[in-house]
Amino acid sequence: MTLIKTENLTKIYSDGKVQVEALKSVNLEIEAGEFVVVAGPSGSGKTTLLNLIGGLDKPTDGKVYLEGVDISLLKRDEMADFRLRKIGFIFQAYNLIPVLTAFENVELPLILLGISESERRKRVMEVLNLLEIGELADKKPNEMSGGQQQRVAVARAIVTNPSIVLADEPTAHLDSKTGAMLIDLMQEMNRKRGITFVICSHDPQVIQKAGRLIKLRDGTIEDDKKFW
């Protein structure tokens, strides 16, 4: 089943004088359950592609369909609701809310969804235990290591059972060992729970774990290989 489809996706950044074409007519289809790594050098358009797929940015031209919905047509609140229900995000760093505990950070999307307290508790602990960070539930981000924080971020991204998780350089601020563990964890979630992952990274150890590798260069797809 096609989960994501882009049609002639184009993004041009302009500061009034200079125009930079970050993405040039990108056509792409991602199936449900894929473990996709989007790789490429800095400025190749990886993050731009991710932001457009996640509805964080609007394309200059072209369309993005997520589960058949043209997300560029959604209004601001509809998009927020869509992200909440369908998309999980993992960012480079500083992506947890510092005043909330690990439990509360993971619980937050469920609160926004209006899920009951008992159901929230059950689901949050289930995900934290699945990621082997149940003992961190009461710790705040500043009491956790970078790797632990990213695990919590993964927990928050998957707790709503989203259709897709978008991760932007998730290992960028981690040492290689922790980074490898994190990517293994994401792969495990992909296999165990069937969650589709789209990960932007130029980290070789992430790239080598890719189920499908999309290489971007200068805003266009240079290569697209499927490994499993």
Binding site: G54, D81, Y94, I97, P98, A157
Partner: peptide
């Protein structure tokens, strides 16, 4: 602002 941006990305609505 950075934190707010991330909160919005995960589905927080601006009014909340």
């Amino acid at each position: 602002f950075n934190e707010f941006g991330i909160s919005l990305a995960i589905g927080f609505k601006n009014q909340k």
